[in-house]
């Protein structure tokens, strides 16, 4: 069990092998990731600080990470600049969002 101090960064792995290192606080904005990493539950992801997503490819996951940082950055501000989302990715991003509970 990871009783020791939680690592500041966690790793997200896409289905095609891309790895994204990002702040735990940002990653945990997504419900699914948060629960996967929950130290109280002690799943394998929590032990390794690494979540492997079998269903999300690198392009989409990159965009997800971008969004997580984006939403953390502007969590408490108004007049947020729009985030640029390529229309081609729209559908896949929506599915990922549902899956990740963002």
């Amino acid at each position: 069990m990871s009783n020791q101090k939680l690592a500041e960064y966690v790793t997200l792995v896409s289905s095609d092998g891309f790895e994204f290192n990002l702040l735990r606080s940002a990653a945990c904005l997504a419900g699914t990731i948060k629960k996967a990493l929950d130290p109280k539950s002690g799943f394998r992801e929590g032990e390794q600080n690494r979540v492997h997503f079998e269903t999300i490819n690198g392009v989409v996951l990159e965009k997800v990470c971008e969004y997580l940082y984006y939403s953390q950055k502007f969590a408490e501000s108004k007049d947020v600049p729009d985030m640029d989302i390529p229309p081609a990715l729209c559908l896949e991003l929506l599915i990922a969002a549902d899956y990740l509970d963002v």
């Binding site: 996967a36 539950s41 002690g42 799943f43 394998r44 992801e45 079998e54």
Partner: peptide, 15 residues
């Protein structure tokens, strides 16, 4: 024995 399990996998199944 939860540490042997992958949350993501289980979640995916349930999902």
């Amino acid at each position: 024995n939860a540490s042997r399990l992958s949350y993501e996998e289980l979640y995916r199944h349930a999902y």
